[in-house]
Design a protein around this nucleic acid. Structure first.
Lengths: 213, 213
DNA sequence: CTCGTAGTTGAACGATCGCTCACAAAATAG
DNA sequence: CTATTTTGTGAGCGATCGTTCAACTACGAG
């Protein structure tokens, strides 16, 4: 019984997530969120109790949809795990269609903003672990396919890739040129020994040199 | 002629810098900044014109003092450049004395918060470049001392270290355990080929395994 | 001692913040 | 229909935001 809900939780969380990714927790005001989601403050607070509650739900949705989706597509379900690692990196800065430069990674941004949203740290931890274990899976398969050196330490390399990836996202936000980001991606693959058995794409031959956008 | 200024610009900027590092630009309110610096709004605005102006000055001071100082001590003035690179990494999460967990890197935080403080991007760029060229200098000297492989590409490795370092700072803010951060540092040195000629400290023998603080 | 100048002080401005709540609207039950 | 329950609506709350400004205080010059 009672009136039926007219808004879709997934759509609302997607809109809120987009705003939080672009502007951060503090930078997204409730008025902004109302406009983005099309909801009114009463309904928002009935559903999520507070701005923090909405953020928490958006972070969970980000983990469940964006992070897990990207990990699955690029790292788990790929035929060529090495190419998957590469595309996992490049898709973070390539293929930003329109005028919006970059939506930002909610995990990276929230980790840095952690002082302001302390109760979100568990969500951040969960997302980072999802990425790390995705790297570990891809590395294990790549090693089994002899695309990587047999003596590669998968656990250590997975953390290394996670760290490089987070650093790359920081550089993306700082406005680093795409060529440099590609060079970093090449270096990441080189550092785990890729290219000693195969060379699936055009060589990484010094894409650097130009420093700016 | 006229009344003489009673506050020290360096001290005021140091206090403001500390607050911005801990809480970010949006998270540090003017009331907070007044308390931290001991100044009153009138004087603050007379001297810095706006909150953004104060932040800009604090970011410049951060580059000139903290970043350049750390780069000089660990990367430029060291006898052993490889050990310097290691200590540059570890000093970002070790040696946090008291209750405060971590002040945060103003470059990392500002890059991520860039939407809110667009005119700070030049300062961020400058700081990142200082670190990168510091790495390049240390790598060049290390290679000359045959501490690193002769075929090492200094430019590529310097960007790689910068990216890893930024990623490390994100992980620090996410509450990653110190053991894991040490393992990342070990991996960073391993990825540039350190340890093939010398082993200046206790081995990196799998410090991993424990996942949490 | 007076005057002009540079610096300090803090009350208070309008705007916006996160949030509440009384009420209206839409659904089911009897 | 009426009664009950759930959801949507939006005016508006107190608090705080970044910022301004008029009064006040210390200095040097004449």
């Amino acid at each position: 019984m009672g009136r039926q809900q007219v808004w879709d939780r997934g759509e609302v969380l997607a809109s809120a997530m987009g705003l939080f990714r672009r502007r951060g927790y503090l930078g997204a005001s409730l008025r902004d969120l109302e406009e983005a989601t099309g909801m009114h403050p009463g309904s928002l607070y009935r559903a999520f109790q507070s701005k923090e509650g909405l953020f928490s739900a958006a972070l969970d949705a980000y983990n469940d949809q964006v992070v897990e989706g990207r990990v699955r597509v690029h790292l788990l379900d790929t035929q060529d795990p090495v190419a998957g690692i590469r595309s996992f990196f490049t898709s973070a800065f390539d293929a930003n269609p329109g005028p919006e430069p970059d939506p930002g990674c909610l995990l990276t941004n929230t980790a840095v903003e952690s002082y302001t949203v302390p109760q979100a740290s568990e969500g951040v931890r969960r997302g980072l672990e999802t990425i790390e274990s995705g790297f570990a899976d891809a590395l294990t398969r790549a090693r089994a396919q002899q695309l990587l050196p047999a003596e590669l330490d998968v656990e250590v390399s997975a953390v290394q890739l996670l760290t490089l990836y987070q650093g790359l996202l920081v550089l993306v936000r700082s406005g680093t040129a795409a060529a440099k980001l590609h060079a970093i991606t090449d270096g990441a693959l080189a550092s785990i020994g890729a290219g000693q058995a195969k060379a699936p794409q055009q060589a990484s031959a010094s894409r650097m040199r130009n420093n700016d956008e």
